[in-house]
Nucleic acid binder design. Structure first.
Length: 315
DNA sequence: AAAGCGCGCAACCGCCTCCCA
DNA sequence: ATGGGAGGCGGTTGCGCGCTT
């Protein structure tokens, strides 16, 4: 007797979402809010399982999503948080506004893992990888160490006690005192902590480097102050009024947000206009079950790239 | 030009946790 | 206290795309 499946899959659609399905889901959520996900597909007229709808919304359609590759700053943040939290992607994502757990998980598995290995760091433990076993001492002088494959040793981090504040939701305690003891059932003996000078700040600029130990000014302020600043910046960002679509367009398009590909920009703007004016239609002459047109897929990615805005204005 | 290969990412699967009756 | 429903979460899969041969 296994557990009942979350939904009866008979007759339900799977695979990539179509633009039409996305529109139905967006319209429904914006009209009714996020309610019982199991009921959503029925009420929204979708042949999908509720879970699938929730996933699509949270990972893809949510208006506050920031899309595109993680910046160097965000990447470092992920590494630091992973060192503290392990594979708790949702917790990590909650500290990176606009990023989803799925996105971070994918990025970790495809990019960061490799990077860390290349740097000679074990992505699981964040400790230096063991040096490759030296060749048998038969002829040491004539067998040089392989240069490319030998991971670089990095200095083991044994950080001093510190206070870390994370941007968590308001119901959670914001401060965590880390003193080599357990935090949230997380054994600090096993996972190295980030160094105090590596505590990161949320800022509007993704390029702002973390406070570095070489910056003497940072050493004058306490970690608590730094973290408080971090919190404030996050809240400030979230509290900022969302730009209107016109504002957003002028801010981003005029600034060359879409890059230098004028043709692509034109196409994007044309289709964006269609989307805004509810003129977007699937070309049913091609295939009745047309998979999600890359256009809209990328729009949701690109539109949400920088700052979120009031989503209603899109529809 | 075409086949093969590897990578990245969206989506799925199934277990876990929480909540409520 | 307990059992079931619903949502959340992390691991895995599979497809599409770009690069290489």
């Amino acid at each position: 007797m296994g557990r009942q499946p979350c939904c009866d899959k008979v007759g339900l659609k799977q695979g990539p979402w179509t633009a039409d399905e996305d529109k139905k889901l967006i319209n429904f959520i914006l009209t009714n809010g996020q309610c019982c996900w199991r009921a959503v597909p029925k009420l929204a007229g979708l042949l999908r399982c509720g879970k699938s709808c929730r996933l699509r919304w949270t990972n893809y359609l949510r208006p506050d999503l920031k899309r595109g590759l993680l910046s160097e700053y965000e990447e470092k943040m992920v590494i630091d948080l992973h060192a503290q939290l392990g594979n708790r992607w949702s917790k990590i994502a909650s500290n990176l506004p606009g990023r989803t757990d799925n996105e971070i998980k994918n990025h970790w598995n495809t990019h960061i893992k490799k990077k860390l290995k290349k740097m000679g760091i074990d992505p699981l433990t964040h400790k230096p990888l063991p040096l490759p076993t030296p060749p048998a001492p038969t002829d040491q002088q004539s067998s040089p160490q392989p240069v490319d494959e030998a991971p670089q040793m990095v200095e083991t981090v044994f950080p001093e006690p510190m206070i870390i504040e994370l941007a968590k939701d308001e119901h959670e305690v914001n401060k965590r005192i880390v003193e080599g003891s357990q935090v949230d059932e997380f054994c600090m003996d096993e996972i190295p902590l980030i160094e105090p000078h590596e505590i990161l700040l949320f800022t509007e600029s993704n390029n702002l480097p973390p406070l570095s130990s070489s910056s003497s000014s940072s050493s004058t302020s306490s970690n608590h102050d730094i973290s408080a600043c971090n919190q404030n910046v996050v809240h400030d960002e979230l509290d900022q009024p969302l730009p209107s679509i016109d504002q957003w367009c002028s801010n981003n398009f005029d600034a060359g947000f879409l890059g230098n590909d004028a043709a692509a920009d034109d196409e994007f703007l044309t289709n964006l206009n269609m989307l805004i004016n509810d003129e977007f239609e699937i070309d049913t002459t091609i295939e009745s079950d047309a998979t999600f047109a890359p256009d809209l897929t990328h729009y949701s990615k690109m539109l949400m790239n920088d700052d979120a805005w009031e989503f209603e204005q899109l529809l």
